[in-house]
Design a protein around this nucleic acid. Structure first.
Lengths: 105, 105
DNA sequence: ACAAATATATCACGTCGTGTTATAGTATAT
DNA sequence: ATATACTATAACACGACGTGATATATTTGT
């Protein structure tokens, strides 16, 4: 899939995709992502296994993440350059959203 | 639909739903919402007619907005108390998202 | 040894956003 | 006056996504 197409599909990105991508700024495997996202959101977001592994498949297929190695059953992923660019754009979108949401806090 | 069910369905809320709900803090009709959202996002979000009117139907059916009156063909909506509460929770969620996203800006 | 936690995979389901098409009134320009 | 663009709402079909459920297997703790 082209970067252009990836951009179209991933902006706006779901909260789930965003947190998975964010957690992969450091190398991690699926199960560790679940724990990291739970921690980042103080337990608000509990990702199910189905969510994590299907999301990883999509993100990898679209070139936003890549598997770097395997450790036994574990498959270790990391974010790609394309993924970083899209994450950055996503952060800008969230910033805009935040500025518009502040008045409702 | 109960408030409890509405909360479950609307958190996390889509960006589209959020902006429509936000724009209804002041009374507005569908077409005016399209323009308001375009303005709030500096042209980034252009809502299609299908998106706006189907979203208004869902939000009204779930009690987050209500039609207050009609002016010819125009149907004027406003946010309800339930809608305000959910909008507030949503703003809190976005705030958390923003704090986690800042490192990627 | 047994239970709980770790770890991945896959399927079916419902919801949502969007493009498209349709319809029609209103305002502006030529 | 008439054509064009803008305003305004409605309904449908489609694809993408998030999730729960289920299955399987390994490892760790008690």
């Amino acid at each position: 899939m082209s970067l252009e197409k990836a951009r179209k599909r991933y902006i706006p990105m779901s909260e789930t995709m965003f947190y998975i991508l964010l957690s992969l700024k450091q190398e991690r495997h699926g199960y560790a992502i679940m724990q990291q996202v739970k921690e980042l959101t103080q337990g608000r977001i509990i990702l199910g296994a189905g969510t994590v592994y299907s999301s990883l498949g999509k993100l990898e297929g679209d070139g936003l993440i890549a598997s770097v190695r395997e450790e036994g059953r574990r498959i270790i992923y990391t974010i790609t350059q394309t993924g970083k660019e899209i994450l950055h754009e996503e952060a800008e979108r969230i910033s805009e959203l935040y500025n518009n949401a502040r008045g409702s806090l």
